[in-house]
Write a protein that binds this DNA or RNA. Structure first.
Lengths: 347, 347
DNA sequence: TTGTACGCGTTATCAG
DNA sequence: CTGATAACGCGTACAA
């Protein structure tokens, strides 16, 4: 009763064979009622639960998926994991979460662990595409020997795996159009790091959108801001202090809500009133958006749906790398651009 | 090269026994250099990695810990998980994260999964103590048959496992003293739900502190607010609209920063200026505290250290349930109470 | 230095 | 309806 209880213990104690114990546990029909009852009693008494490892060894499947991301401390990743978790759960799978050191790519060690654990599929999410492509594809090749691989990545990335991407186009388009519709003509983008695929793609789309609307695409309106609030502060300070006041933008699109948070603080610190003196839009529609001052207009990428789709694809695991285009981004209008709440979605 | 590669495949292909393959993989010294090289080449060619399940079956340990919490979407839990993850990692363990449905207790199903996976230890964190005590202890008893169990829980809870608790006393004391020192006499607490152990403990400590300072402990100053921003909004509205203006508190202690976020919004909406008309203090020192307007003074419970300690205890797994009192809470002073930044820590 | 053979806990097959 | 027994992939005595 103290150490590990095995099927042998139960079989011996119940006076039956291990085969019968298995039948009882699995609810097999071919067991006499009295036998079943007898065995069940012993099982309960000993709190017996079969070992997943042994089951795996025999059966093949681990019924486990892996999610790999940089840190669960990031709210965006958190929403992805949460959705993936429950989708997997609903299908009888459990999820193992792996975090990668800051900007480290997919390490050999991680690949090794993934394979060693014999998970039935991996989902990579974000911040990994900045990596040396050769390393990455090498890792994927090795992984693919053992399990299906999926990635939530920007459209441009060419990876040999199931790719799910968010709607980066509308993610840039919606905010720009919104500001344009409200009369803004000088619009700036403070976003990520131009080093990474994801960020630069967002930047390109932003510029494209400006041109489509015949707006000035002054490079001064386009500055790196990293991914956190502090980055937002710095970016605003750098951009505005480098610009003659008459050339200041009147609207800012931030890489994400956290960056916007920092930007707002810095703008206020410089004496600007929001949204009168400056409009601002974030991205991700985080929980705190309604609580900034003014409430932050934001784009929702619906990361939960990306995660859900990714898990589904992984479970189906049809060969041939599928490319799913996801549900469109949605603009959530609040008051940080001064829009009336009766605002209707543009075209 | 397509399906699963086993140690037999490697052995056959390299023309040696499985024992020799193991030796090479594990870096055993007693292998002739030429043999080692030959085997290693085959291993690399086939991308062979031993199966964790098989290793577990043979060896006993899974080298895996489980962390159970309600949702990783909560920033506080997120910090705990992150810390636990890296501490485990540093010790060669991996972590499995389990989420429980909203307010559901530890389900039979979860206990079952935990045992089936044969994890080497579990850490339960938060929001589980509101549960029926009988169920809970029953689950723990069963789990303890297979693995050491730890819980990050409030001091009052009597669970038969390793208990790590945060400094709930100072968590209430520090804010009250801070406000008192700044001249506040009518201080309110908007916090959690008095149904749960954790919340009520915080409430008790709060009242105790008021009495210790000879401040009024008017029940009207003590209202449930749940755990999110919306709860904070509602709590403020309810409290203030039910009170004659002359009896309004001048300072509010919020259950956590998110609740404070909502409270701030509601206070502003009622036309109050912060911190002049109302001081407010949060708890958890979340990333957004410096970015509220005004920047939010908060208490840091150092959840990372709780998690780290919990993991350490779990790995040592000394029998007999240890009770660790953790590092004291710290008050992080910002501007939401109007304190000068030169503020010194009270006694 | 290397190989043989068994055990780890479970399920599946096949015989009774 | 029930019981032997092989097989799953690996590590480890023990033997050579």
């Amino acid at each position: 009763m103290s150490g590990k209880v095995t099927i042998y213990d139960i079989a011996r104690e119940a006076g039956v064979s291990t085969a019968t114990v298995t039948r009882v546990v699995r609810g097999d029909a071919n067991v006499r009622a009295s036998t079943r009852e007898k065995v069940q009693r012993v099982i309960d008494a000993y709190a017996y639960t079969p070992s997943a490892s042994a089951q795996h060894l025999e059966g093949g499947r681990t019924k486990t998926l892996a999610v790999v991301l940089t840190t669960v401390t990031n709210l965006y990743f958190t929403r992805i994991y949460d959705a993936a978790y429950w989708e997997a759960e609903a299908n009888g799978y459990s999820v193992r979460l792996f975090q990668t050191k800051d900007n480290a790519p997919i390490s050999r060690e991680l690949v090794d662990t993934l394979i060693r654990q014999r998970v039935d599929g991996v989902l990579f999410v974000g911040s990994i595409w900045s990596t040396d492509r050769r390393d990455l594809n090498e890792a994927l090749e090795k992984l693919r020997l053992y399990m299906p691989v999926a990635a939530i990545c920007p459209p441009g990335v060419q990876l040999n795996c199931i790719r799910i991407h968010s709607d980066l186009v509308n993610c840039s388009r919606l905010p720009v159009r919104h500001l344009h519709a409200l009369g803004h003509r000088r619009i700036a983008f403070i976003g990520g790091s131009m080093q990474t695929k994801d960020s630069s793609k967002r930047g390109e789309n932003f510029l494209e959108e400006l041109r489509a609307l015949d707006l000035p695409d002054d490079p001064a309106y386009h500055v790196d801001a990293g991914y956190d609030a502090e980055g937002g502060e710095r970016a605003v300070l750098r951009m505005l202090s480098g610009l003659d006041r008459r050339r200041w933008p009147t609207g800012i699109v931030a890489f994400n809500d956290t960056v916007a948070l920092g930007a707002i603080k810095q703008l206020k610190q410089m004496g600007l009133h929001l949204p009168e003196d400056m409009a601002i839009i974030g991205c991700d529609n985080q929980f705190f958006c309604p609580y900034t001052d003014p409430p932050l207009t934001s784009v929702d990428l619906h990361p939960e749906e990306l995660a859900t789709s990714a898990v589904r694809e992984l479970l189906v695991a049809r060969e041939g790398t599928a490319i799913s285009i996801m549900r469109e981004s949605t603009l959530i209008v609040r008051e940080s651009c001064g829009a009336a709440l009766s605002y209707r979605k543009l075209d």
